[in-house]
């Protein structure tokens, strides 16, 4: 992955839009304290369920809290969960996939069966059960999402390693005395980075969706801490009187996920030699 590739992928207009969206969400999350117009947790009983106005850009919720400020802080949760969860799953995926593809044999069979088992358990059920037992906290959510989404990366890395393992440059390095670790991390991994990066970017999108789904069910980030998912859950209760409570958080999730999907797909197209012009 060098600068040239980044430049090439950003020349794809869709990838560029996606990238800008991601930058924007980062900006919002980092500067949430400066941008917010109210304290996100401040309850104001005189301002319950106010529609959007210049004072409250996205209205107020059932406790009179300013939705716009809560949305800004919610961006932090969704970024944090997305990146940490994908970090964990990518780490596990690279580790297992590398072992599997490099050593082959029985260990490859064992790891691939593990992948098959994890792929046939309805993951969302698994996440729900684990979260309910371990109590829902952001840390647990990130870990559990990470631990249940490494299968794709594992298969990807394994496939890359299998196809690269017998190439001349690897055999050459081996002949020159490179040990296994060096072969894996210096020679094989850098050559399989492209698909890993694409799948990580798309993975963030799905982690954000899973987190919002968990929060929507009340098993995600716990109130009073704001997350887009739990603002939406409140919105469900008030949907007849306060559309803004369910509309804005959903829209924010959509835009974020769209950003990662556009960037990921754009990256794939730009880096795919078959599709390159």
């Amino acid at each position: 992955m060098n600068l040239n590739l980044i430049k090439k992928s950003l020349s794809n207009p869709l990838a560029l839009i996606g990238f800008l969206i991601i930058l924007f969400i980062f900006f919002v999350a980092i500067f949430a304290p400066l941008l917010s117009t109210y304290d996100p947790d401040a309850i104001d009983v005189k301002a319950i369920l106010l529609p959007p106005s210049f004072e409250h850009l996205m209205g107020t919720d059932g406790l009179g809290r300013d939705v716009f400020s809560r949305m800004l802080y919610g961006a932090r949760i969704s970024l944090l969960v997305g990146f940490v969860a994908v970090g964990i799953s990518t780490f596990i995926g690279i580790l297992l996939g590398a072992i599997s593809g490099f050593y082959r044999g029985w260990i490859d069979i064992v790891i691939m069966r593990m992948v098959d088992v994890m792929l046939s358990i309805p993951t969302f059920f698994l996440i729900l059960a684990v979260i309910a037992f371990l109590s829902p906290s952001i840390l647990n959510i990130m870990i559990v999402i990470g631990l249940t989404s490494w299968m794709g990366v594992t298969r990807l890395v394994r496939a890359e390693f299998l196809s690269l393992r017998d190439r001349e440059f690897v055999l050459g390095a081996q002949t020159l005395g490179a040990n296994d670790l060096r072969l894996i991390f210096i020679h094989l991994l850098p050559n399989s980075l492209t698909p890993i990066i694409v799948s990580s970017v798309l993975g963030v999108a799905s982690a954000v969706l899973v987190e919002s789904g968990l929060s929507f069910l009340g098993l995600g980030v716990q109130p009073p801490q704001a997350s887009w998912g739990n603002i939406l859950t409140d919105g469900k209760e008030y949907i007849q009187f306060a559309w803004w409570l369910s509309f804005f958080p959903g829209l924010a999730i959509l835009i974020t996920v769209l950003g990662y999907n556009l960037f990921g797909e754009g990256l794939r197209d730009a880096l795919d030699p078959r599709k390159a012009k």
Partner: peptide, 22 residues
């Protein structure tokens, strides 16, 4: 379609349910 693909399903469900049902 791509925008729909990125939308959280439960959000669309909630809004459509409200619109068509309520």
């Amino acid at each position: 379609i791509f925008i729909l693909y990125s939308a959280p399903g439960f959000w669309i469900s909630l809004l459509l349910m409200y619109w068509l049902g309520v």
